[in-house]
Amino acid sequence: MIEVSLLDPFDYLSIPLGEWVEAILQYLVQNFRGFFRAIRWPIDQVLDVSETILKSIPPLIGIILSSLLGWQLAGKKMGVFCAITLFFLGMIGVWSESMTTLSLVLTSLFFCVVIGVPLGILSARSDRIEKIVRPILDAMQTLPAFVYLVPVVMLFGIGNVPGVLVTIVFALPPLVRLTNLGIRQVPEDKIEAARAFGCTPRQMLFKVQLPLATPTIMAGVNQTLMLSLSMVVIASMISVGGLGQMVLRGIGRLDMGLATVGGVGLVLLAIFLDRLTQAMGERTDASNTLHWYETGPVGFVVRAYRGIQAK
């Protein structure tokens, strides 16, 4: 006789979740290979372009361009800071790997923005969509990356493209959340004023909500970048190149030097990107009253040009 215990009903009540997932996965792999290959295509294109550009720029030119960008976005100090960080990156001998990682991160950022900002806008406009999206975002952020690494490999293969894909999964949520939050936080009186002057919903979005939400959205971009960078190391397990690979190889061979160099490279890249995007967020703040072409190197050139014209 089987003893039925009421206190522990899970002996006979159980869901074979694992088996189901495996079955579904098998089914998908066998029947939808073409579909998943198609998803690879756009990522492949963007990744190719960004990697080619970043790799073809000589380090010195790269450093100069980045510092000019930093100067333009946040003043001379930022320019100098960018130069030092990147110079250091080059000196520890990881320039090429950094560029691979940077292209991966920028590609995933590109897709995160393309997917995340519209999704954030949608969920800001409809409470129902927000209710649906929220748990999905929670799952994307909390599900351990190792759980979906294997299915991704089975469906997409290995290499940089599936690497970008898992990075998107991990880095997308904050951008959606912060876009949603930013738009919802636009003060009610501004919305009311815009309505009173006859804004259509589209005008409301582009002329009022998005501009006012930009600092928050930029914070989302910043978070997405940081998460992408941290994901790059885990993604290197499915043979993604760059700095993450160095770290993984270093750990695998107990070569602490190699791991540390890769790690420090990542940190430097992170600091560089973090500062830049933060500066971009601050620029969009209301307190900034100069036009972009009046500041930084562009302002410098414009002033010089006007000076010449005046003579």
């Binding site: 009186d189 006859g198 209301a286």
Partner: peptide, 21 residues
Amino acid sequence: LLDVRRKEMSMVFQSFALMPH
């Protein structure tokens, strides 16, 4: 209705409600 709001009636608010950007 948009036409009425754009041409016939304009509103001034207690909180000013100016666009900061």
